[in-house]
């Protein structure tokens, strides 16, 4: 496509503007993590020219980083009130395990819904979707009592179950649409080749749906990574995820913005790594429906 120089420049500028709009909050938040409290709310705001400190990270992770931006006080051994490293680990465990749970169940269910004809199949799909129509807060309190009965309160298993199950409807519907895009002749062909349903699923269909699985997994992971309400209600002291502990930086003696930013900035990293890992499949997954083979 031929474009005049002006238009091209304009497009480049517009592109960078959009990137800037999305990137600026991340940049600012990250720099806040490296600031002393006095440098955070300056007016006019400073963007680059501040005295950097690793103190926020040291408090949040309960370690001395060993590289100092000037003199540092010793960090309380074993962590003080702001020691949050284990919470990051909680988040990683919960997000990955609930994603695995949702993907395994959703993939199997979606394949059945896409390929097998049984009575009430369409109703089943509608029912699956309808479970997402309820506001989560409506079930938070009942869930609390149910979990209490089953001793699931404040356990990994409990939160993993809730996050996994909450992701199921969306994951099932997404995966179903990916399976629907795979021509059923491929299954039939394998069936005539003598393969069992399970072999077809494992050796033929699953490899073809990799992109869809990656896309679904990213959505599930991010959901669990950022979920607040159920972690707040269903955990007490032994586990908490990043979004919930972030709120504990708001204390009676003020808000620890620097520490909150440090945890937030650190929390970007695992999610970022997960997305990078599956990114190769992701783009293909999101466009798979449009590519006829």
């Amino acid at each position: 496509m031929h474009q005049s120089r002006g238009i091209r420049t304009l497009r480049t500028i517009a592109g960078w503007l959009v990137v800037g709009v999305f990137f600026f909050p991340i940049y600012f938040w990250t720099t806040v993590a490296f600031r002393n409290a006095k440098d955070i709310f300056n007016w006019p705001p400073i963007f680059v020219d501040f005295e950097p400190t690793a103190r926020n990270f040291e408090q949040v992770f309960g370690i001395s980083l060993g590289f100092g931006f000037g003199a540092q006080e010793a960090v309380t051994p074993g962590g003080g009130n702001f020691y949050m490293a284990p919470r990051l680990w909680d988040s990683i465990v919960i997000a990955s395990m609930s994603t695995v749970l949702a993907i395994v169940v959703a993939t199997l269910a979606a394949y059945c819904l896409s390929r097998m004809h049984f009575r009430g199949r369409h109703e089943f799909v509608n029912w699956v979707l309808s479970t997402r129509m309820m506001p989560p807060v409506a079930v938070a309190v009942p869930m609390f009592f149910i979990f209490k009965q089953f001793s699931l309160l404040d356990t990994y298993l409990g939160v993993i179950l809730v996050h996994g199950l909450m992701n199921l409807p969306l994951a099932v519907l997404l995966m179903k649409s990916f399976f629907d895009d795979i021509p059923s002749e491929i299954d039939e062909s394998a069936l005539l080749d003598g393969a069992s349903r399970w072999t077809i699923f494992r050796r033929i269909v699953l490899p073809m749906a990799k992109g869809g699985i990656a896309a679904t997994a990213v959505l599930c992971f991010i959901f669990s990574w950022t979920e607040f309400l159920f972690v707040l209600t269903l955990t007490q002291t032994s586990i908490k995820t990043v979004p919930v502990v972030s709120s504990t930086f708001v204390t009676s003696i003020g808000t620890a913005w620097g520490n909150m930013a440090a945890l937030g900035a650190a929390a970007i990293v695992p999610a970022f790594i997960v997305i990078m890992l599956v990114q190769r499949h992701l783009v293909r997954g999101l466009t798979m429906g449009s590519l006829k083979q």
């Binding site: 002749e185 062909s189 393969a195």
Partner: peptide, 19 residues
Amino acid sequence: HPRDRDIAMVFQNYALYPT
């Protein structure tokens, strides 16, 4: 069952296994 009929079929869209 289809696999026990000792037949082979070629489909319109070939239905090759892309992976």
